[in-house]
Design a protein around this nucleic acid. Structure first.
Lengths: 191, 191
DNA sequence: GTCTATAAAGAGATAGAC
DNA sequence: GTCTATCTCTTTATAGAC
């Protein structure tokens, strides 16, 4: 992790690569994996399509590099705390446009690799949530919570056409809290 | 809407067309619009690709015919009734595989036409829900409810990798009810 | 009514020039 | 390091044979 002096070959390459990755994230978000073209990425980054291939080797690899940047949130503690953590993460995702995550979500339904990455990520997230829920159906409750977060994120950033797209994140969060608390709180484990 | 006698030209055509539509729905659900090919549809229907084009003219038109079959649920009455209606519809969608709707959902994020159809449908659904909520932020609450339903449906049928995919619909519904009631119930309109 | 053959366009990927 | 030219494959869509 050295930082070559500006102007050096390596440094320039790093910059160009970063610019391409940025552009690629944008294109993947806007178009989804299948519809995104190397050419579009290149043109958005202000370089040639051949260069993109030269750096990343394939479209799949470029895509992989983009979604590798998608962070996995951590959850732990008491149920109420966990809900607050989940909502805090969501609030951040509503406020800004989490490009890498959106690229992943957008492509999740059509690209097998995206689907598998998303699956694994969601499963891990759900497992963390399930761990803090005391009910016997904890894992189902966790799945539903995660589905709710998914639905809200997709509706706001990708489907748009929503009051959700323009709403103040704080209001969304405050409306969602009782909802998630009902799911995370043990007590009336059905049956 | 006449029903030609079996064996006639028109009747055979109708049957073949129906078989193609069926196959197409399956392919669109499994692959999404971009990845679905006319060839795959034709082969799934046991006919030639040329025949599919001959009947439907274009891939877009075939797709349109498939998603035209997706039903729009109705909601009305008191908030509690509305929630029950929403949940009843969801229960049905969890129990069976609503092919046309899934084709729409799967393609929603990559296909402009699917996106617009989905937008319109969701907006209409949200408007109905908003109508039965008395709060001043009714439309935001309705959007969130609709996002929740979207998230659960997508998680179960498309993302799969979930406890949701195998769960008993009745349990999902009973976990979701307090959640939706919290959203649909007026009372503490924030601010 | 159904299928074969083919045209036309677009994509990812490769080789090599500058 | 960056771009030009091109190959090859896949796809939709068309025209016409059976």
């Amino acid at each position: 992790m050295t930082t070559p002096r500006p102007g050096s070959r390596a440094e320039q390459r790093r910059r160009t690569e970063a610019r391409i990755l940025d552009a690629a994230a944008g294109v993947f978000v806007a178009a989804g994996y299948e519809r995104a073209t190397i050419r579009a990425v290149a043109s958005a980054a202000g370089v040639d399509a051949g260069l993109v291939m030269h750096y990343f080797g394939s479209k799949q690899e470029l895509y992989r590099r983009v979604i590798d940047a998608a962070p996995l949130p951590e959850v732990s503690g008491a149920p109420e705390e966990a809900v607050d953590q989940i909502l805090a993460t969501l609030a951040a995702r509503l406020a800004s446009e989490p490009t890498a995550s959106l690229a992943l979500l957008r492509s999740m339904l059509t690209n097998p690799e995206a689907a598998s990455v998303a699956s694994v990520g969601m499963a891990r997230y759900q497992a963390q949530i399930a761990d803090v829920i005391a009910a016997d159906d904890a894992s189902l409750r966790a799945s539903i919570i995660s589905a709710v977060i998914l639905g809200v994120t997709v509706s706001r950033h990708l489907v748009k056409s929503d009051d959700l797209a323009t709403a103040d994140p704080a209001r969304v969060i405050s409306l969602l809290r009782p909802c998630l608390l009902a799911l995370a709180a043990e007590g009336h484990a059905s049956q």
